[in-house]
Structures are given as structure tokens and as C-alpha cells.
Amino acid sequence: MSRFLHPFSVCSLTIFLFFSCQPYKLVKEEKQHRYTVSSPLHIDVGDKAVYRASVGILGNYFSGLFVIVNADSLYKAGFLSGMGIKFFDMQIDEDGYEIIYCIESFNRKPVLNAMARGLRFMLEDPSKYDGNFYVDKDDDIIYRSADNDGWKRQYYLENGRTKQITGRRFIRNMVLVELYNNRADQPENIIFLHKGMRLRIEMKKL
């Protein structure tokens, strides 16, 4: 019995190690090529930016204007309908986010969490994470951010699209952030996709 179990266990362990450690392997390799990225991809809204936006949540779709205001690194974001009625507004800073107003359709904490985290990722200046950037052999930028709540995130660029690497391979790309642009440093089209929440935000700068 033990002779039979032994190779099976080794095989299982190998498979487990291979799949569970693959994302970490990628970052580990890049540590050898560490350097600071001078213009990492993020949304620089200046004082204010207005996007035309559509948001899909759990099969419901909303479209309108998405406004982001920067008040000394305290970001305020609001989304209102084409007819002018506001869906929600929130403020985002380094410590987290606060919902100021929200209609019932958006008022689900996991959805708001995912949305606020996605916005914070897109808005925060990744240069403050100097030393956490890596460039791999295909010139993909990989960086990790550590939120105050202890979450560690890893992102990479693939064909000009920013994607989040999650800790486990099978949920890799569960969260997808695409920032693609006509100008080198200022994304004008943004897609934030969270498959688990059935949340999709598409934004186009006006």
C-alpha cells in the first residue's frame, strides 16, 4: 500500500507545487531585473477628468458620465445617468474608500469593494512603489502593491493591457484592468472587469 501511495503523493505534490507557485515564479525571476519604472501606467486625472462610462453589475447595465476629481490625493468619484440622476459617489484615499451616496442597485458591499479597489489601483501613482517594479524579458511591467489592509497585488502588462495576477493560477485574470491609450502615459480607454462580481466598467475619456 505504501509503495503505491508514495509515487502518487509525489505526483500530487509536484502538480500542486507547479500550479500553485507559478505566479510567484514569474515575479521571482524578475527580481534579477529590478529597476524603477519612471512612467508607470495609471490614470492621471489632473484636477478633474470626465469619462463616458457604462457599468454592468450582476446583469444590470447603467450608462452615463463618470467624474473623477483629485483634491490633494483624495479622489472623489461620481457616476450619473444620461438623464442626470446620480447613481453613486465615493471618496477614495490611501486608507480605503467611503460611499457618500449610492442607489439601491449599486449598494452591495462586495461590488463597491471591488469597484473602489479597482479605482484606487487605477488612480494611485505606482511610482511610490519604487523598487517593486520589474520588467521581464518581454518588457512587461510587473509590480506589486501592498494596501493598508494587507492585500498584496501583482500586476503585469500584456499587449498593452494591465492585468492583475492573483495568487492562484485558476483565478488568474479574474480581475482584469485594461488601460489602453492613444497617448503614452494617459489612458483614455479603461476597462475594469471583475468576473466574480459580474462587474464590468468601461470608461472613455471625453
Binding site: 476629481v69 461620481g78 459617489d89 451616496y101
Partner: peptide, 11 residues
């Protein structure tokens, strides 16, 4: 939008 201190105008 009061909280954002922004006025949006559409035509």
C-alpha cells in the same frame, strides 16, 4: 454634483 464640487453641462 455637490460632493464633487463639479457642475456638468450637457446640451
Amino acid at each position: 454634483m455637490e460632493f464633487l464640487d463639479v457642475t456638468l453641462v450637457s446640451k
